[in-house]
């Protein structure tokens, strides 16, 4: 479904969405403090979680990477699921997107763009959080790890759109995922279950500078698996939607 030729349109649309949304925030900021709201929200969330972890004698640094992964993966997945669900619930609005030359990918592009825009604030929060926790950065590994997380953002959004398109409980599920994902990530890293989300764990290892080569390979393999799975579910969901088995079923 997602042909190579369509990626150009998807990325362009996603960028335009991000750029215009950011421009709109700046435009509003001329009249108030809205410009600071997104980063402030991200930072507040981080500080709240940080405080709770410290309260229970947790490792302050340990919270940083789960928070980063949560922002980069769980939000796009859960957020896209919720947004896709509400967009597709209104068949008029859905039709405006779906009746485009890239079809259902128009919705995917829009939600990908939306994720970029929302995460902008969170990224600023992450940078601020990095300063607080003083994590050790490991040059290339860190860049590769971040790249991996970005690569995971695409199947995350795609999977979110697919679930939002098909399941009537997508809205509730997205909230559950966003909460559960975070709890899962702050499990002790020695827990074998952590490897269920192979690319995530690999990204964590890379970011913390552990065994670079195996982690890179795991990460790469895991990312490909996530892309393949997201593509499969996306196609299946869209086909179900076209048959009349989507969220807007009468």
């Amino acid at each position: 479904m997602t042909k190579l030729s369509q990626w150009k349109s998807i990325l362009k649309l996603s960028f335009l969405f991000f750029f215009y949304t950011f421009t709109a925030i700046v435009r509003q900021a001329r009249y108030g403090i809205q410009f600071f709201i997104l980063p402030a929200l991200g930072l507040t969330t981080f500080m709240a979680v940080y405080a709770v972890v410290r309260m229970f004698d947790g490792n302050a640094e340990a919270i940083f990477y789960p928070f980063l992964v949560f922002n980069v993966i769980s939000y796009p997945l859960g957020g896209a699921m919720q947004l896709a669900y509400f967009t597709l619930l209104d068949s008029s609005e859905a039709s405006a997107f779906l009746a485009s030359p890239i079809g259902v990918n128009a919705l995917f592009a829009e939600l990908l763009g939306d994720s970029w825009a929302t995460m902008m604030g969170n990224f600023i929060a992450i940078v601020a959080a990095a300063g607080i926790t003083h994590p050790q950065f490991h040059g290339l590994n860190t860049i590769y790890g971040l790249l991996l997380l970005f690569m995971l953002l695409v199947p995350g959004v795609k999977l979110g759109v697919a679930i939002g398109m098909k399941f009537v409980f997508a809205n509730q599920l997205s909230q559950f995922i966003m909460a559960a994902f975070f709890l899962f990530l702050i499990l002790p890293s020695g827990n074998p279950l952590a490897w269920v989300g192979l690319p995530f764990s690999a990204a964590l290892d890379l970011l913390s500078g552990k065994a670079a080569l195996p982690a890179m390979l795991y990460g790469f393999a895991g990312t490909i698996l996530w892309w393949a799975m997201a593509e499969f579910v996306f196609r299946w969901s869209y086909n179900q939607y076209r048959l009349g088995k989507g969220v807007d079923r009468i």
Binding site: L13, L16, T21, A24, Q28, S100, I102
Partner: peptide, 19 residues
């Protein structure tokens, strides 16, 4: 379906790209 926070020009640019 127009993005309410964007100007009409921005909406137009976005939809023309989509089309």
């Amino acid at each position: 379906y127009l993005n309410p926070r964007w100007t009409l020009w921005e909406n137009a640019r976005y939809w023309f790209t989509l089309w």
